[in-house]
Design a protein around this nucleic acid. Structure first.
Lengths: 190, 190
DNA sequence: GACATTTATTAAACTGGTTTAATAAGAATT
DNA sequence: AATTCTTATTAAACCAGTTTAATAAATGTC
């Protein structure tokens, strides 16, 4: 669990004993490609850390798949909207590849936060990080063109394009596959 | 400060003594219509509660004003992005009307959270509320048409249309004034 | 009450996406 | 190797917005 440890410590300092206390609650789970960590109408009690693989977080509305996010190595993830509010999910978490995660239940996470002030701080800071990322996402959706958002994704997460089919990337960008193809053509002609 | 008290208690239970302790740090401030609570390149140390009035939170990029949010009575607000990260703001907070706010400094807020577990919880829950609102905003930007977002704003915040000029509402919706006018015409023809 | 300024609408030409459908290219299966 | 299934591109018609410019309506000021 070195990668999990390292990621936690990238947020805030945590003593070895607190870290040990926290990590004992994480269990390793694996999911085969094409299987689901979560489906609509289910409650989600798990908080995940991605050890290996890639998961897409999406909804299907009126027959249309809308990819909200891709989670790969080093990401903490869950359906945070449903998790926080303790309401049934409206989303899918689907393994796009064989996936290995570490997972902790909400009750255990609460135990950890109760026990360790440092880890509680990690929890708060990771929530703040989420705020900052969501804020940037809103600004990008409002201020950038689709082409600009495509180029930015290419720059920020180039590895996605090696492992995720293009029509899912189009969906993530809020485009149809046809629309993304047009953008790519336009760019290649320059 | 009854309205502030009531709003805090809508998040979580707070004892009278903790409430009294917290409220002592809030100061009342007023701003005349057209003046600024914040301008780009300034650091923001204040966390506001809107007692009376309306503030727009916006950026100007390449000569274009982009309204991110309107804050009116009962809102907690600041430039949270700059506030959290303690970086210079890129935004304006402008009084669209004469404004009365209660405000608390970041240092004082930390004192309050240190002193009162209940108020710390209020802080965490209000952060979670912000997450939920931002998440919904992202979904609306991705999944709804401009017309749908206009209709939703009409329904959710009808009073805005009484106090804010239409071209600012257009900006909030990510439209030009011309675009919003077309939508209104289309709707009125049904 | 007349004038100047700000705000909202309309028109016309344009643009970057959409949908639908056909085709091409790549990958998996037998 | 041939077949089938999935993924990506292209074309054509369409649509909801844009920009620019002119006009109309509302508001504020002297």
């Amino acid at each position: 669990m070195e990668d999990l440890k390292k990621t936690i410590r990238s947020f805030t300092q945590v003593s070895d004993s607190d870290m040990e206390f926290g990590l004992q609650f994480f269990k390793m789970k694996t999911f085969k490609k094409g299987t689901f960590l979560l489906k609509p109408d289910q409650y989600i009690d798990d908080f995940y850390f991605m050890k290996k693989g890639c998961v897409s977080y999406y909804t299907i509305e009126a027959g249309t798949t809308r990819v909200m996010e891709f989670f790969n190595e080093g990401y903490f993830f869950t359906d945070l909207y449903a998790y926080i509010q303790e309401i049934p999910s409206e989303s899918y978490l689907e393994a796009l590849e064989d996936v290995t995660v570490y997972t902790i239940s909400k009750a255990d996470q609460l135990k950890v936060f109760d026990h360790s002030h440092q880890l509680e701080r990690f929890g708060r800071l990771s929530m703040q990080r989420t705020f900052v990322i969501n804020f940037q996402r809103i600004n990008e959706l409002r201020n950038l063109s689709n082409q600009e958002r495509y180029l930015q994704l290419l720059e920020k997460r180039p590895s996605l394009f090696q492992r995720v089919p293009q029509y899912l990337i189009a969906s993530y960008l809020g485009l149809t596959p046809v629309g993304l193809s047009k953008i790519r053509k336009r760019l290649s002609q320059k």
